[in-house]
Design a protein around this nucleic acid. Structure first.
Length: 576
DNA sequence: GCCGTTTTCGGCCCGACTGTTTTCAGTCG
């Protein structure tokens, strides 16, 4: 499913990695890294671009454009192939070990011929690194622990796990008298779909006792680094938590810095430099005099750089700086914008809460409309029947009388079969207020079959929303193979919404596909797919994903007033 | 390698911590 853009970007990034090992010019390496990000984030398919088209991509110049053309015609890049003969893949893999970078990787390869993580571990145990310049006892120790960590728990965690840890740390530290402000930052604030480590920021004039309290937290299994400005711990589950403490007056600059992404920060600092300023976590300064200009709020920092405040979900250097300069940033959808939820389950199928309890939870969220969409019969283990579904509909109509402010929609989650058909005939389907249709089986069909399957589902006049379209399970099952541009064209043409499922292990559609779909004019539905009362809280992850996809309220059908939504559900083009 | 309402050549983001060093390189974010 990897697009040409992703493969070309990976090759350019590999070129940067290999050059950093062989000791290439650091600025050239950064140029490759920037270009790799730009190519991966470029909306157009690079395989259809010529030299001039490629050079229009920011940070892609003559030399890199030619390398991409090389990839377009040969499927690889000649310089990468050449460097691979000099530096074995295993040496590049060494740099994935925490505390071991390109310089040390090259040293062990050149001096000892080590070209894999296993060989390195073996060499350390045999004492073969002794006497190697720059490698002392502590370094050996750190590498061994780094290897251990990488093998056991070095994986990224899901958003809800990271959010739970962050909430606990922020709550504990906020209770300390020395702490004036405390919040999480980093990739969690940007709502990335998985989190490598949790970043927490605190403002204080007296950091030492805070750091001591931090390392003494029950969840701190190990202290990784310890200073008065920065301290890192690791939880017993292997998740690293970084705490940075800054003076209260530096809060805004620090929050901007520690939210990242690194690529976004590089851009903002470059803008500062060009304006004769210097931006760091302590503030925006005059480059010559060193005088502080602003630092208290993120707003001030961006404003002084000539930019509007940029939402954290956009801070990936994938076009937000350019959009900000032109004052074309989208007004992103928020949890508060949502009037309804169009996908949920009850204990009639695999939910664990009753219809009554789920509806009460929806009412507590302040929703104006709410769809109950239990599974359809072809998901055989759920034992759905026509009779059960019609009986549920009666209960929904009864229950409606108790909720004058919440319109209940009776729906179902259909199963898209391998040919693109769904569970019921048109007559029965017409009785539902809304139908979500999802892929629940035959995940490994080839791209052509899967594309046809999804397009046919969109073309069904009774299918309103494609549920969790890629069917991925983060860390467990990859996305299905499909020609997504073809699917999105069909969705836009037929007035079928793409779901953004809020489950932390789904987040489906993913943000990059959301941005692609939006370019075709596709509409979206941000839903919980709740199977229990607690799942209603997951909506913030779905909204975060929608924000990362640059969506406005108008793009999201369940922000619309009910009448506009009903027109969309008629699939006659009236609301599009 | 890229880029330019100061520049087509000379710049290129900034700081914290660790470890092996006698003043700093490497790594990380």
């Amino acid at each position: 499913m990897a697009r040409a853009n992703d493969e070309a970007a990976a090759l350019i990034q590999e070129l940067a990695d290999l050059l950093s090992i062989t000791g290439g010019d650091a600025f050239k390496i950064r140029a490759y890294e920037k270009a790799a990000r730009a190519i991966a984030g470029h909306p157009d398919d690079i395989s259809g671009l010529d030299l001039a088209g490629l050079r229009k991509i920011p940070t892609v110049g003559e030399a890199i454009a030619k390398k991409v053309l090389d990839y377009n015609t040969t499927g690889t890049i000649r310089q990468v192939e050449e460097l691979r003969t000099q530096i074995p893949a295993g040496v590049r893999a060494l740099t994935a070990i925490p505390t071991l970078g390109p310089k040390k990787a090259l040293a062990v390869y050149e001096e000892l011929g080590i070209s894999s993580v296993d060989e390195l571990a073996e060499a350390i145990k045999e004492g073969r690194l002794r006497g190697l310049k720059g490698f002392g006892a502590k370094t050996e120790d750190n590498i061994l622990r780094g290897i251990e960590l990488m093998r056991s728990s070095g994986e990224r965690v899901l958003l809800d796990v990271a959010a739970g840890v962050a909430d606990e740390v922020v709550a504990a530290l906020s209770a300390l008298p020395q702490v004036e402000r405390c919040a999480h930052a980093g990739s969690l604030r940007r709502m990335r779909e998985t989190i490598g480590d949790v970043d927490v920021l605190a403002a204080s004039t007296d950091p030492h006792p805070i750091m001591e309290a931090f390392t003494a937290l029950p969840l701190a299994a190990e202290v990784v680094v310890a200073g008065d400005k920065k301290t890192s711990i690791r939880t017993d589950r292997g998740l690293q938590v970084d705490l940075r403490i800054v003076p209260p007056e530096a809060w805004g600059a620090a929050l901007q810095y520690f939210t990242g992404s690194q690529a976004h920060n590089i851009r903002t600092r470059e803008i500062a430099v060009k304006a004769g300023l210097k931006l760091s976590e302590y503030g925006l300064f005059d480059a010559d005099s060193g005088d502080l200009i602003v630092s208290r709020t993120e707003d001030e920092v961006y404003e002084r750089l000539g930019l509007p405040w940029i939402h954290p979900a956009l801070r990936e250097d994938t076009g937000e700086i350019e959009a900000a300069r032109k004052d074309e940033l989208p007004r992103l959808v928020t949890v508060e914008d949502l009037r309804g939820d169009l996908h949920s389950h009850t204990d009639l199928t695999d939910g664990i809460a009753s219809l009554e309890d789920m509806v009460a939870a929806a009412a507590d969220r302040g929703l104006e409309y709410y769809a109950i969409t239990d599974h359809a019969p072809n998901l055989f283990m759920q034992r759905m029947t026509d009779e059960k579904m019609l009986a549920q509909r009666e209960r929904v109509r009864e229950l409606q009388k108790e909720y004058p402010g919440l319109v209940l929609l009776h729906g179902t989650e259909l199963n898209i079969d391998p040919d693109g058909g769904v569970d019921w005939d048109a007559g029965f389907l017409a009785g539902f207020d809304i139908c979500v249709a999802s892929v629940h089986s035959h995940f490994t069909q080839d791209e052509a079959e899967m594309t046809r399957r999804l397009v046919r589902a969109c073309e069904n006049p009774h299918v309103h929303v494609i549920g969790h379209p890629t069917a991925r399970s983060i860390g467990r099952r990859p996305a299905v193979n499909a020609d997504w541009d073809e699917v999105f064209r069909a969705a836009a043409r037929t007035g079928t919404a793409m779901e953004i499922d809020s489950f932390p292990d789904r987040l489906d559609l993913p943000a990059d596909l959301i941005r692609r779909a939006k370019r075709f004019g596709v509409r979206f539905s941000v839903d919980t797919d709740a199977h229990s009362l607690g799942h209603h809280r997951n909506i913030r992850y779905g909204v975060g994903t929608a924000q990362r996809g640059w969506l406005t309220p108008d793009d999201v059908i369940n922000t619309w007033p009910l009448e506009r939504l009903r027109a969309f559900l008629r699939k006659d083009g009236g609301a599009r």
